[in-house]
């Protein structure tokens, strides 16, 4: 056989990646989802489990700056990539403008969907700084919320767009 099976095939995988700027290195089961890796190996429980089928969006995280659903992302496949979770977005004393906007507009109730909603908003505003309501509603189509009826979330995204633009201008 031309292929060295031993070399290619592993029972467990050594995953090396950066999570919220911190390097990490862990042996994981080959089928572990990125969600379980974050929650159970790294105890980053801000990323939530809602369905494990990729429909609810509560588990949304960013991989190399793009949002993905961590429940249907194989942890082993984010080798050497940069992962950002809600914990990395901002803390109480230094809220990200998107977080501040969701607080101001009560863009959540139980907040179980909030990590996903926030990260989806960050990606939307990175690409579309001044989205229309239709663009906002479409950008959130991968995220379910059962509490708000989305009205306060759409309002929060609109406010976030204003704060985000202002924030960027200050930085420049």
């Amino acid at each position: 056989m031309a292929v060295d099976m031993q070399e290619l095939v592993e029972d467990s995988v050594l995953l090396q990646c950066r999570v919220n700027e911190t390097p990490c290195e862990e042996f994981i089961h080959p089928t572990t989802s990125l969600l379980d890796f974050l929650r159970e190996n790294l105890l980053l429980t801000g990323t939530h489990m809602g369905c494990m089928t990729g429909h609810c969006g509560a588990c949304t995280v960013m991989v190399d700056g793009s949002i993905v659903k961590s429940c249907i992302t194989l942890a082993a496949s984010v080798q050497r990539k940069k992962i950002s979770t809600i914990e990395g977005l901002g803390e109480k004393e230094s809220l990200h403008p998107v977080q501040a906007a969701f607080c101001e507009e009560s863009g959540f109730q139980c907040a179980y969907c909030a990590p996903g909603m926030l990260l989806s908003t960050v990606e939307l505003l990175n690409e579309t700084p001044d989205p229309s309501d239709a663009e906002i509603r479409s950008a959130l189509s991968g995220n379910l919320c059962r509490c708000t009826g989305y009205q306060s979330i759409v309002r929060a995204v609109r406010t976030a767009a204003k704060l985000y633009t202002a924030d960027k201008e200050t930085q420049e």
């Binding site: 099976m5 095939v9 494990m52 990729g54 249907i72 992302t73």
Partner: peptide, 26 residues
Amino acid sequence: TELLDALGTGAMVIAGGQELMPYLNY
């Protein structure tokens, strides 16, 4: 391709995982 050939049945290819992960999780 050689690995797939050598493994016979029981191997499964995964890329983005959007199709397979739900089945795997359950």
